[in-house]
Design a protein around this nucleic acid. Structure first.
Lengths: 158, 158
DNA sequence: CAACAAACTCAAAGCTATTCTCAATAATAA
DNA sequence: TTATTATTGAGAATAGCTTTGAGTTTGTTG
C-alpha cells in the first residue's frame, strides 16, 4: 500500500501541475494528501478544464474507473478543492452544483446547458460581464459573480 | 358565498386584464375558476410585473392578507398559471423556483439577486441576449432561454 | 337547483442533494 | 517505527421544497 501510494505520488508529480501546490496547501493546514483527494483532482485534470461535473458524476466516473471513493468523501473533497482554489463551483439552475477545474488561463466564462442531457459548453463574453457589472452598480449591489446560463437543447437531444 | 364570488368576479373583470383570458382558458379544459386561483393571480397583478415570488412567499402574502390558501393549492395553481402562460417561472440558483407575471410588454430580462436575502432586481440587456443567441448557434444548440443571473449582495445586507 | 367532477384543505409522504456519525483506517511528524 | 489525529466509508439523517392522498367542499352545466 505504501508502495502504491508512492507510485501514485511520483506519477502525479510528473504529470499534474496541481499536485504540488495541493500538497503544500494541505500541509500548511495540517491536512493530508490522500489517494481519494488525488483521484478527484486527477479526474478533473484528465477531463480538462471546460468540463463540469456534479458530485454524483464525479462519483460515477471514479467508480467506473474502479477507483471507489465514497460519495461523502467526494462532497468533502469538492468543498476542500474549492476552498483551496483548485476547483470552481457553479450553481446551475436545474438543481445541484457543478465543479470545474479552475486554471489561471481560464477567464470568466458562461455556460450553454442542454436541459435534457446536462451537456455543458462554455463561452466567453465581455459584453455579458460588463452588463452584470453595470446592473450591480446601478442598484448599489456588491457584485459577486455574474454568469449567463443559456438553457438550450443540444444537437443530440433535439 | 355565491355573492362573494360574484363580487370578486365583477371586481376582477373591471380591474384585471388577465381574468377573462383566464376564465376562457380554464373552461376550455373543463377546469374551474376558483377564488383561490383568482387570489394568486390577483396577488401577482397587484405587486406588478418585475417582482418575483416563491411559492412560499405567495403563501405568506396571502395568509397575511387574511386570504388563506393552502400551500398545496398554491403549488398547483402556480403550475397551472405557468402552463396557461400567465406566469413565468424562473429558476434561480440558490434553490427554489420563483414566479412573475408574464405580460407582453415585459421583454426578456435578467436578474440581479442578493444571495443573502433573496431580493431580486431585474434589468434588460440586448447585448446579453445577443451573446446567448450567438453561443447557442455556434454550438448547434436550440436556444430556449438565456438569462444572466448576477449574484451579488444588496445594500441592506452588506 | 341538483348532480358530479374538479378543486380544496390538512397532513403525511417523497424527493434529492447534501451532511452527519463513528468505528476503522492511514498519512504524517518525530 | 510509532503515536497522533485527520480522513475515510457506509449508511442513516437532514433540510428544503414539492407532491400526493383522503375526505370534504364547491364551481359548473343542464
Amino acid at each position: 500500500m505504501r508502495i502504491a501510494l508512492s507510485l501514485l505520488l511520483s506519477f502525479s508529480s510528473q504529470y499534474n501541475v496541481l499536485t504540488s501546490p495541493l500538497v503544500e496547501d494541505l500541509h500548511k493546514d495540517g491536512k493530508r494528501l490522500t489517494p481519494q483527494r488525488l483521484k478527484v483532482l486527477n479526474l478533473f485534470e484528465n477531463i480538462g478544464s471546460g468540463n463540469h461535473l456534479s458530485a454524483e458524476e464525479v462519483h460515477e466516473k471514479l467508480v467506473k474507473s474502479s477507483s471507489k471513493v465514497s460519495l461523502a468523501t467526494i462532497y468533502r473533497t469538492l468543498r476542500l478543492l474549492v476552498k483551496i482554489g483548485l476547483l470552481h463551483e457553479l450553481e446551475l439552475s436545474e438543481g445541484g452544483h457543478r465543479y470545474e477545474l479552475l486554471s489561471n488561463e481560464t477567464p470568466d466564462h458562461h455556460h450553454l446547458i442542454c436541459i435534457r442531457c446536462g451537456r455543458t459548453e462554455e463561452f466567453e463574453s465581455d459584453e455579458v460581464l460588463r452588463a452584470g457589472k453595470i446592473a450591480a452598480k446601478i442598484n448599489g449591489f456588491k457584485l459577486i459573480e455574474s454568469s449567463l446560463n443559456v438553457r438550450a437543447i443540444c444537437p443530440k437531444c433535439i
